[in-house]
Each structure stands twice: as structure tokens, then as C-alpha cells.
Computed example of a mutant assay.
Amino acid sequence: MGNKPSADASGSYRRHGPQFTDRVVAEPSGDTEWPVEAGRYRLVVSLACPWAHRSLIVRRLMGLEDAISLAIVDPLQDDRSWRFSLDEDGLDPVLRYRYLEEAYLARDPEHGTDNGVSVPALVEESTGLLVTNDFPQITIDLGIEWAKFARPGAPTLYPPELRAEIDAVNEGVFHDVNNGVYKAGFATKQSRYEEAYTALFARLDELDERLANQRYLVGDHITEADIRLFTTLVRFDAVYHGHFKCNRQKLAEFEHLWPYARDLYQTPGFGDTVDFDHIKRHYYQVHTSINPTQIVPLGPEPSAWLEPHHREELGGSPFGPEGTPPEPLEGPLRPLPPLDM
């Protein structure tokens, strides 16, 4: 997620792909590959952003907290996009930057905010250079390439024997759900909105049916597919249902998707990385073309996410037969001050 979105001449929202697609890998073999090295990189995320949220979940599931440091930006952006204004003196304590844009400029001095400043981003701590903002590849690599730094009992999130199926599920989820809510919310013509709305709920209906008799999207434990769907589902009723006009029904009104989402939320690494305060403040206060008053809604009640889901009756286990949960977090990731009255 980067700067304020806009629609093209047809009235359709267009998402720009990542512009920096270097990778951090265990055995680098070219100029666009960086070595896996504990303490070398800083992961910059917004707790509001579903794309960044994925990387936060994987970092936690894999137990990479000691290997990769974490920076959390303010959910509210200004003209220079994501900023470190939640940190003391408005400076990231490691990178010494006020804006994530500075890491982009260190990598490419010609890169301006208009070209996009997005999270998640991996930044080299010693140089302040942006390494990659390739959000789909970041999570895959965190789950595979960083294996030597993973905690005992970490899950296999992208198992080779399931990759074709995971990729197929992810493709539809990306276009119709992850990006679909944005295509509905930022459409500027009725026909474009209706196309996105129709595709979104057709895909959600398909997923709801898929989950009727299986606990997870692919296989019998959590995979990359579940992580990618979850970060949209957890924002659905709080933001997308009303703010983006995705209002045929709430997530809480789906027979199987709602218990499935609660099952994930109650799994360590998922719900403990969700911050509804950051999420709602970002969408309702930044998207002034949709919500000019910037009023942030109080609901829905987050305690509903803790209701029993009974999904364990379908079998399977979150982390696989040999896996274990990550250690509990101590307190919120990044609290915010009260809203201005």
C-alpha cells in the first residue's frame, strides 16, 4: 500500500506493482539478490496496510523477530507518504529517517513520491537503502529463504507439493478480493464499481463454499494462501463493507468464511498482529475523497472475533503435525494516542 489511490480515465482503479523487486535469498547469485543475514535488514510496515500485514504475520510465524528488525509507520500519511512520526522526535531509531521515502531516494535519487512509496519495504540498516518493496515475494522468501533463522516448530507456509494449488487460489483472491475491494472502493464510474463488486462477492461465495468441509484453503495447515486472504477479511467489516461500498453482506454473515476468519484470528501470529485502531484511522482519515469528514467509526465490536469457531472439528492443525505456535506477544505492537475530539 502506497500513496493515495486514484482511478484511470475509464473509472477503474489501477494498482501499480512493486518497482524494486530485488530479493533477499540464502544463496544469492546475481546483482538483484541480497544475502540472508541476521541483523542486516529492517522491515518497514504499516499496521493499517493489508499488504504489509502479510509480512508481519510471516515474520512472527517464522520467529524471525531477532533476525529482522521492525519499523512501524504512522497510519496517517502526508504528501511524502509513510512517515515515522510515532517514533521519538519523528525519527526511525535505526534508519534515522523521518519518511520511508528517504530509503527509496537512497536507492534511486530519481524516485519521487509520485512514483509510489509503499509498504512493506525491506531496508538495509547500515546504508539506509531500500532493498525491495515486492510484497508478494517478500512473504514467500521470509518463509523459505530465512529457514536457518526460523524458530523450532515454524510452519511450512509454501510447501513444494502444494505450490501450484496455492498459486491458483492466490491468483483469484488477489484480483477479486485483495485488490477487488480497492477496485470497488476507488472506482469513479458506476459500471466499474459494479464489475468489481460482482467479482468480489462471486469469489467470496466460492471461497465460502470451498471452506465448508476443509479448515484451511489449501492442505491441512496454514499456508501462504490463508495469510493473503486473512488480511483482507479482517478489514472487511471494519472498513470495506461501508467505506468501499462492498455491502452485499458482512463477513460476519458468511456461513463458513466468518468462522474460518475467527479461527485464524485466534491463532497466534494472526489476531495479535491486528490493530483495528491503525486500520480504521488510516482508511477513514486518509481517504478524504470518500470520507471528507474524516470521522472514524467506533464499530464493529472486536470481541466478536473471539467467539468460538469450532473449525477444529474439520481436522488439520494450524502449524502442521510437527509445528508449534510462536511465543505470545507482550502488549500491542504500536499504540496510538486518543483521537482528537
Rank of each mutant, 00 (worst) to 15 (best):
A187I: 08
T223W: 12
E206N: 05
F186E: 08
L200M: 14
F149T: 02
G143H: 02
S191K: 12
A184P: 02
G180A: 10
I144M: 08
L157K: 01
N133V: 00
G180H: 08
N133M: 03
E161C: 13
V169H: 02
N115K: 15
R210W: 14
G112N: 07
A187D: 08
T223C: 08
E224S: 03
E195P: 00
R215V: 09
G128Y: 01
R215M: 08
A168K: 01
E125P: 00
T139P: 08
V117I: 12
E194N: 09
E171G: 09
P152S: 13
T113Y: 04
I138F: 04
E125Q: 14
P136K: 00
T127E: 06
Q190L: 15
W146G: 04
A121I: 03
N178E: 02
V119R: 03
G180M: 11
A164C: 06
F149A: 14
T198E: 03
E194S: 07
T127S: 13
V177Y: 05
T156H: 13
N178P: 00
R210I: 13
E209L: 15
E206I: 01
K183W: 11
G180V: 06
T113K: 05
D220E: 15
K183G: 08
E125W: 01
L130R: 04
Y193M: 03
E194Q: 12
G143L: 03
L122Y: 01
G128F: 06
E125Y: 01
A164L: 11
A147D: 07
A187S: 15
L162C: 07
V169G: 00
V218Q: 10
G143Y: 01
I138R: 00
A164E: 09
A150N: 10
A199L: 13
G180Y: 08
A147G: 02
G116N: 06
Y193T: 04
T188V: 13
Y182H: 12
A202L: 08
S126N: 08
H111E: 02
E224L: 06
K148T: 08
P155W: 05
L217R: 02
V123M: 04
A150P: 00
H221A: 09
I166N: 04
Y182D: 10
D220F: 04
P155V: 02
L211T: 05
L130F: 06
R192A: 15
L207G: 12
L204E: 14
N170W: 03
T127G: 02
F174E: 13
A199E: 00
S118A: 13
A202I: 01
F149M: 07
P120I: 05
T113R: 11
L157D: 15
V169R: 07
H111D: 05
E161V: 15
H175E: 14
L157C: 08
V123R: 03
T223G: 02
H175F: 13
D134P: 00
L130D: 01
D176P: 04
Q214S: 14
R163A: 06
A147Q: 09
R210H: 15
